[in-house]
Design a protein around this nucleic acid. Structure first.
Lengths: 209, 209
DNA sequence: TAGATTGTTAATCGATTAACAATC
DNA sequence: TAGATTGTTAATCGATTAACAATC
């Protein structure tokens, strides 16, 4: 039975499934049961079957799941075959680190351009991605289809920049600024990487172990 | 009534409270009720009071909470005044970005040293942090008290490096490798920053908006 | 066929929300 | 004092787990 309203918890588990299945593929595993997948991931078999059943019927009674097929299905659900287009705003250390190391294409993203205010970097090319001036950002967004913007800019300009981009029709933000961005439009999606929150959580855990 | 077993959901909200309260302090707000704090954070007043009550009684009937006091209490719970000591392993683009931009001290961490395999960077100092050879890592860990290790190294060596460090007594890992690290010892804590999982979640959301 | 394992329904558990007496 | 707001207990809601008929 396919659900219409998928809970946040389920969605957050999908990338983990995808990662695990990619690993199983690489290890040459052909089929797997919910039970053994659960053992590897520290999840109950029940939960795995419940999660998958939100999206369809991917298994076979008495057999389990074909690893490659299931990986492809979950990849499809996540949209890895959608060829999303992405631009980066702010090419400081973090932005550059992402451009040089992160495998955007594995998640189905193409990085088309980056933008910065610094004259010393404008005009350069980082790992194949051209860096333009922030002054041409508006025009670029208007002319090109941009699904997601990566915000690797200082906190101080984060919300203003986001507002400006939302105005221009951007509806996906990968936010590294450690600020809670928001929009009145529920169709605008923010995914936040809060480094500080993460480290504080660890701090709590080691103190209360 | 203080609980002994705090749920993961509560713990993950603590850094958000801390962030919001820091912001309120900066804005000069002196007192706040659970109701108005909830409005600002999109959380019910009930949940806020429940969350805080896990750790003590920080408010006053008819008044609410003193912002500065509450911030300090939550900071204390999170351990920001514990002066944790941290070393970084792997000083590539991402490691350097963190060393140069992330405010470790605001989370109560001191970065004492970094380690890398590259001769071109060993011996240098990045934002005040000396970079040593991986060959001297074991000796360093043995001689110094290290609470948390930041793993900004390639996936391929992640689990092996973690195992080696756990052996040496490290029990906190801030893991940027997009691999699910694990340990048999439940007192060893991992906090993972899974960039790819985060971007895939965003991919799903913009596709199903 | 017999054994295994699915997808789904029902039961349980835990987390969120509502309600309210206590009290500043 | 009266109004406001807490901390906590009770009610509700949702997510996880267990059970099982269906079937490969």
């Amino acid at each position: 039975m396919r659900k219409e309203n998928i809970s946040d918890a389920v969605i957050r588990r999908l990338p983990r499934y995808y990662r695990q299945l990619t690993d199983l593929c690489a290890r040459g595993v052909v089929r797997i049961s919910s039970h053994s997948l659960g053992q590897e991931m520290n999840i109950t078999a029940s939960q795995i079957r419940q999660d998958f059943s939100c999206f369809g019927e991917f298994g076979q009674q008495g057999y389990g799941y074909n690893v490659e097929e299931l990986r492809s299905e979950i990849g499809h659900i996540l949209g890895v075959d959608n060829d999303h287009h992405l631009v980066m705003i702010g090419v400081g250390n973090l932005g550059r680190a992402l451009l040089q190391n992160f495998k955007f294409s594995q998640a189905g993203f193409t990085v088309d351009a980056a933008f910065d205010v610094s004259p010393s970097i404008i005009g350069s090319v980082v790992n194949g991605v051209p860096v333009y001036s922030m002054h041409v950002l508006d025009g670029y967004i208007r002319k090109n289809s941009v699904d997601v913007v990566v915000l690797t800019i200082p906190q101080s300009v984060a919300q203003d920049t986001a507002d400006r981009l939302i105005e221009l029709g951007v509806h996906g933000f990968w936010n590294f600024t450690n600020i809670e961005l928001s929009s009145a439009d529920p169709d605008v999606k923010f995914e936040n990487i809060h480094f500080a929150d993460s480290l504080l959580t660890l701090s709590y855990r080691i103190a209360n172990r």
